[in-house]
Design a protein around this nucleic acid. Structure first.
Lengths: 235, 235
DNA sequence: GCAAACTGTAAAGCTTGTGTAAAGGCGATA
DNA sequence: TATCGCCTTTACACAAGCTTTACAGTTTGC
């Protein structure tokens, strides 16, 4: 069972090959391990197989077994978060899905921002309720103490006032301490979108982070890798 | 996707003659071999012809077959990196979102700088990360320790301060230790462009590398192959 | 042995990435 | 609707580092 805050493993069940290809590419790009099944039957058996999934994206209309059936059978034994995908925009589907135990619902067509927003919301929900997923570990690297459970950061025992984005950037850097983290990765994982040319927002978040950290502790703890990204320096 | 990626041959598919002329001139000037098709149908058949392309610049709005159709049909058999050209706004979400299958997109009108930035980003994605998700191994050859994940090099346990380009040159040499590596290869893989006549930049990067390495360890670890390139000497 | 071609490298020049303040924008909140 | 917080964009100065230039040294071919 994963103890990580962010998703590691996602199962996509949808008969639309084009869509699953796309989702696979996109989610892989965000660093997730993705598995795809193109009908309900195969999807269900994969979902209840030994392999652990942190999230299941489930289409409603599919051959062999529709999404509601899959969800119902899945819930007999698993509490894996499920995000339903449906072309039908009416509320009936929505209510039915949620009553059966879906965690959220996303009408097709949707764009990546919506998807990311939903995924994040689900992950957050599961993280806060200790029952569902894993417990995130506190991190302590180079005098920086980061506690995901309380969304709090202390440097030399002095609390920092970070925004959520700054918090997530710092957390990503800490999870990859002493390893290069590209701006592309930061953008995908923290902001949920690909990095655009001449996009400076990551630079700004890092700049703000540095400012807040160095106001409390001397020395730059974040190394710039020119043309690549950033790296949190180890002790 | 191919692990070996050297950008030298580009296909431009766009019905705007003025633009394709400009692109052709410009990219040729950078040393790329450029082919142009002015409608989707011709573009697609060229793209899936026997000729290999390293990158395709693809306009969205075109006669006969639009860019999305071309991309979709192309993807059935090819994984060639595609950079979509599109008017800002309209297609932005469509491309960024779930119909993605392109490697990147570039809103028109764009300038040279932007185009170059995109091409570089694609090159970097293919060279630096060596194929999405695959973890690159640490290398230890002839007292040189190179760690891609931390973008760090140590010689006799002393850390070197290398630029990203120097790092990539050294990495290429180490991956091909005791084998000749031509300047042409270095230019393509590290700089992402073909080597041009009288171009001395590779020589300079190697020279700088030697300087930094020999400041820490005696003896020249990089052998010059006159008229060909360089080679990292084994123990 | 000599010219031509190639290489090493210091230094200059120039391009491009980065840091950061400030303005702008946008969604959430009251 | 007005306000607030925060993310993003803009603008500009600066610095890193890539490329070019220049010249000296070296190798090759004849």
């Amino acid at each position: 069972m994963s103890k990580e805050f962010h998703l590691q493993s996602v199962l996509v069940i949808d008969d639309d090959i084009e869509l699953t290809d796309m989702l696979s590419t996109y989610l892989s790009g965000m660093g997730y391990s993705v598995n795809v099944k193109n009908d309900g039957e195969a999807g269900l058996s994969e979902a209840i197989s030994g392999h652990h999934y942190d999230l299941i994206l489930l289409d409603v209309m599919m051959p062999k077994m529709d999404g509601f059936d899959v969800l119902q059978k899945l819930r007999a034994s698993h509490t894996t978060p499920v995000l339903m995908l449906t072309a039908r925009g009416d509320d009936y589907d929505r209510i039915l899905g949620l009553e059966l135990g879906a965690d959220d619902y996303l009408p097709k067509p949707f764009n990546h921002r919506e998807l990311v927003a939903r995924i994040k919301a689900i992950v957050r929900r599961y993280t806060l309720s200790a029952g569902g997923g894993g417990i995130e570990q506190d991190l302590l690297i180079n005098d920086i103490f980061l506690s995901p459970s309380s969304q709090q950061v202390k440097v030399n025992d002095i609390a920092l006032e970070l925004t959520t984005t700054e918090f997530m950037v710092l957390r990503l850097l800490m999870l990859n301490a002493a390893q290069r983290v590209t701006k592309e990765q930061i953008s995908l994982k923290v902001l949920g979108k690909p990095l655009q040319a001449f996009d400076r927002s990551i630079d700004m978040h890092v700049s703000n982070l540095r400012k807040k950290i160095s106001a409390v502790a001397p020395g730059d703890k974040i190394k710039t890798l020119r043309g690549v990204g950033y790296m949190l320096l180890p002790e």
